[in-house]
């Protein structure tokens, strides 16, 4: 119980006749990075806003750090940091002044605030532009300033809505690094995104949203097993040997399919790389490549929505 920072049961949001969020259940544990995935309009942002008490719920219960966002939004908002999609700051103020305003809203004493703000800005590499106006900032810098706000707030939970959208690859990489650092300092991170490979690289668990419901939830590997079927896929490239023949009868190997000139796709129910390599070499083949095909979230996502469409 105390390990869960967010617990959601049957959360529902109705706009007119449409269910934007339809009876979802969700738990987020202390110190994990949880990804909310799904197409636009699937209910990710609405869910986030309800967690923060910024939108009224139509049904279900939400518990954030032991508080109810509907009745105790101030307590929730004091402990949860939020980085909205395309976060905005007051352009005519400097980075530091923007954070000072937040610190005042949080009722942090002035001297402590100054110190926390400098630490936070340093942690997101914005210390040298602390006194520059935000109007001169790039999008990536604004996002980082948003992270700095969460760091300064010493939030126990950070909720990031599309934190990497519209960022160049380098800025994305930096931002994800900061998100990992947040996790390391013990903050539970909830992030929504549609940049799947990026999400895959940082998330411990993900939930796949579809039309207001959580379609799938778990680690990336679990999802892959669920959607793509179980197994460890391998890509084997070798010359001077028929890999399919060499591997026949190997314990654990379920299927070997040719995948082009001198390449095979191997499906196994466990990690059989060492055994595969040994067999190919002893059979006299030259092993040129042995790759563990990590199940990609993108594949899971695409396959899932293809199937969902077929089912519909």
């Amino acid at each position: 119980m105390s390990d869960n920072v967010i617990e959601v049961h049957g959360l529902t949001k109705v706009y007119g006749a449409a269910h934007a969020v339809n009876a979802i259940d969700l738990t987020i544990r202390r110190g994990e990075i949880f990804g909310l995935l799904g197409p636009n309009g699937a209910g990710k942002t609405t869910t986030i806003l309800m967690l923060l008490g910024l939108t009224e719920t139509s049904g279900g219960t939400v518990d954030v750090l032991g508080f109810d966002p509907v009745r105790q939004p101030l307590e929730v908002k004091r402990r949860v940091g939020y980085l909205p999609d395309a976060v905005g700051f007051y352009d005519h103020l400097t980075a530091r002044e923007n954070l000072i305003y937040t610190a005042r809203l949080l009722d942090i004493p002035r001297r402590e605030a100054d110190q926390r703000i400098m630490e936070a800005l340093r942690s997101v590499d914005l210390a040298d532009v602390a006194d520059k106006r935000v109007s001169t900032f790039s999008r990536g810098m604004r996002q980082r300033l948003g992270i700095a706000e969460i760091v300064m707030k010493r939030a126990e939970v950070a909720i990031l809505d599309e934190p990497t959208s519209g960022l160049d690859p380098h800025a994305t990489f930096e931002l994800l690094e900061m998100i990992r650092r947040l996790k390391k300092s013990g903050v539970a991170v909830l992030l929504s995104s549609h940049l799947l490979d990026r999400v895959q690289s940082v998330c411990d668990r993900v939930a796949l949203f579809n039309k207001g419901r959580i379609a799938l939830m778990g680690t990336v590997v679990e999802l892959a097993n669920q959607v793509l079927g179980a197994g460890h896929p391998l890509l084997v490239e070798a010359t001077g040997i028929d890999v399919a023949e060499a591997l026949s009868g190997t314990p654990g190997v379920q299927q070997v399919v040719p995948a082009g000139e001198g390449a095979w796709r191997v499906t196994a129910d466990r990690d059989v790389r060492a055994e595969v390599a040994r067999r190919i070499v002893t059979a006299g083949g030259a092993l040129t490549r042995l790759a563990d095909l990590q199940p990609s979230l993108e594949e899971v996502y695409t396959r899932y929505f293809q199937e969902a469409r077929h089912a519909a």
Binding site: L54, K77, Y90
Partner: peptide, 14 residues
Amino acid sequence: NRRTLSRVLSQPLY
């Protein structure tokens, strides 16, 4: 329009 509203409202104030 500056997209500051949701960020400010996510601080502890009504």
